[in-house]
């Protein structure tokens, strides 16, 4: 096992992992200061006969310091985080060239719809594949998440993508995969008895494979009619 975040496979992974490491370092410093400080105090100031504690009610200067440092750090962290947050989640940030897919969640499966031959989603020639999302690599994709019954959550750890699918709402999530391969989609929101087995796969294809797959599906859809 990795003891770390899952291997990165999308453009989001870079900033998120970097931010994670930054926070890990900041909190690590705070943790070491507190825990080492505690241990030192426990040893140094343990009760011994004849000793009396230093009588003080505090120090305004010290308190200002340890109020100001976290405050400044937190505000800075908030500003940096917000930049990436807007990039990842804001509706305006979805790239114009993103390929659109529909992801419809229901107990306990994911229904992925694809634009058919006309290249637009929401028309008659759309086709649906259960529990399989096929996307091209290095190409922004946008998912319109909907839910049939209860709240589900679309989660692909390698892509650092998570977004709830809420009944009554159309929520758009976008990402860009950077490595071809096969990844698992999990449901991250308790959605009932079968929550644990609400598993799907996302296949990231090279452009050639993707075109071939689309053609195959289109042909199958034609044949089916």
């Amino acid at each position: 096992m990795s003891w770390w975040l899952p291997p990165a496979a999308s453009t989001f992974a870079g900033p998120i992992d970097t931010l994670f490491i930054v926070i890990l370092i900041l909190t690590g410093i705070a943790l070491v200061v507190v825990e080492v400080g505690l241990v030192v105090f426990l040893v140094r100031y343990r009760a011994r006969p004849g000793r009396k504690a230093f009588y003080t009610h505090g120090s305004t200067r010290a308190e200002i310091i340890w109020t100001a440092i976290p405050a400044v750090t937190m505000v800075a962290l908030g500003l940096v985080s917000n930049h990436y947050w807007v990039m990842m989640k804001s509706k305006k940030s979805v790239p114009a060239n993103a390929i659109r897919y529909g992801v419809h969640a229901k107990q306990f499966e994911w229904q992925m719809s694809y634009a058919g031959a006309d290249g637009t989603l929401g028309t008659d020639d759309d086709f649906m594949v259960r529990n399989q999302l096929h996307i091209p690599v290095n190409q922004p994709v946008s998912l319109t998440l909907t839910a049939e019954d209860v709240i589900h959550s679309f989660f692909v750890p390698e892509f650092r993508v998570k977004q709830d699918a809420v009944p009554g709402m159309n929520i758009v999530a976008w990402f860009q995969a950077t490595k071809a391969g096969e990844y698992e989609i999990g449901c991250a929101e308790l959605c009932g008895m079968g929550h644990y087995k609400m598993r799907a796969r996302v296949f990231v294809h090279t452009p050639e494979e993707y075109t071939a797959w689309l053609a195959e599906q289109a042909a199958a859809a034609q044949g089916g009619e």
Partner: peptide, 23 residues
């Protein structure tokens, strides 16, 4: 409590919350 408080910062920073939310 220090550990609990510090681990909260990971989730408060929204981009980092994405992979660890609901885990």
């Amino acid at each position: 409590f220090t550990i609990g408080g510090l681990s909260g910062i990971f989730m408060a920073a929204t981009p980092v919350d994405i992979p660890i939310h609901d885990t």
